[in-house]
Design a protein around this nucleic acid. Structure first.
Lengths: 223, 223
DNA sequence: AAGGAAACTGGACGGGTGTCAAGAAAACCT
DNA sequence: AGGTTTTCTTGACACCCGTCCAGTTTCCTT
């Protein structure tokens, strides 16, 4: 789909000058290319998290970098390409955090408390990243170019939440009373509002989130 | 707060040439001024709902109007002033819709079904307006100028949800098990995800929203 | 009807944007 | 070392943005 009729270049490559393409080229070279791409995407992610989508320019991104603004078009086809790469980078971070949350869990109570606390922690220390996520998700409602990747991330978050809910039900010998989408929507609602209030300066936002998440888990299951 | 030390002009007025200000001026004149302001804000709201915050320019707004782009600076101090006026206009629409939802409700079941159906209806027919709301709420996380008004709208929505929840509890002789903020966060989560899926083309998004909202109400109360 | 105020127009300005390309610099490979 | 390719810089381009303002038109008062 992505490299369909209107693109004359293999998927993953970027500029007219393009990345190393020769057959005999060592894999080290293309790894280096991908590595720099990730490095630039990380800087872009930082800038986006700081300024938001609407206010982030390529020159601003390059200033959070040792390079000049021109290099961005050497590694990315255009701004959309860059930002999509960014958002995927975000997803990697995100899933990793959630997996850490899920890791330590033997009993139902442990899982519930660990999960609730983990939500609160990431809401606090990755606050700007999460607000960028909500920004990008809103953007995807207007800009179709973002929609596919945003939906994919949304899905992976939903699966993650569902893993927690169903595991919690299993450990506590109960059964879920909602479908995955509903469970995700509710936790996401709680999370987003906690983030909103936390960034607005409410000191109890994160504690409240933890308590709410803790109370929601049993509410989504029954004997 | 708004007309503090750094503004040399009475609150509500806009441009250097400004609105009619003389003492002997009839009220009809200032009403006319406010009326045109609202008219322009309505056009701006339409443009914003269509394009989103990041892609909406003053010239684009003026094109959804019988006037030229210069007139916007006659009625509004700057872009932020316009957009804030817009968002307040949105709030008026929003609260009205919700009030209509709340109006017809004698029994608990009637209220629950009317409310759930109302959510689904407005999610469908005002979809672009609601996506703008989520866009603006995200913007407020980056642009402090929007924060106060966004929080105010958020609060009024929360009160509206709470009116429904507490009225439902009353009618069904039960008591709420959550605080207003939590109830709002959950319904908002459901609503936002339904909107997302609806705008992405999912045909069952609105029906699912209705069912979810219907199931959530009793879950937020107990005997 | 005339004069003045309000309402509106349309172009200009300075600045910022994404994109591109020509050339300098660095890295790499015999 | 020399030549080639990859990588990066720099400056330009065309365009769009918010803002402003001189001037025109419209409306209202007297």
């Amino acid at each position: 789909m992505t490299n369909a009729l209107n693109t004359d270049r293999p998927a993953g490559t970027a500029t007219p000058s393009g990345p190393p393409n020769a057959d005999r080229v060592s894999r080290r070279q293309v790894d280096k290319f991908a590595q720099r791409r990730d490095q630039l995407a990380a800087a872009a992610l930082q800038t986006l998290a700081e300024l938001g989508y609407a206010r982030t320019s390529l020159r601003e991104i390059a200033q959070n970098t040792d390079f000049s603004h021109g290099v961005l078009h050497y590694y990315f086809a255009d701004k959309v390409d860059l930002i999509i790469h960014c958002v995927k980078h975000y997803k990697a971070i995100c899933v990793r955090r959630y997996d850490e949350i899920l890791a330590a869990s033997a009993t139902a109570a442990e899982l519930a408390e660990g999960f609730a606390a983990g939500l609160a922690v990431t809401a606090g220390q990755d606050a700007t990243l999460h607000r960028l996520w909500y920004d990008m998700r809103s953007q995807s409602l207007f800009e179709p170019a973002f929609r596919a990747d945003v939906l994919e991330i949304d899905d992976s978050l939903q699966r993650m939440i569902w893993r927690v809910v169903s595991r919690y039900a299993e450990l506590s010998d109960r059964t879920p009373t909602v479908v995955p989408a509903t469970a995700y929507a509710m936790f996401d609602g709680l999370f987003q509002h906690a983030l909103l209030r936390h960034l607005a300066g409410a000191p109890d936002a994160l504690d409240t989130l933890r308590a709410e998440a803790l109370a929601l888990l049993p509410r989504l299951t029954r004997d």
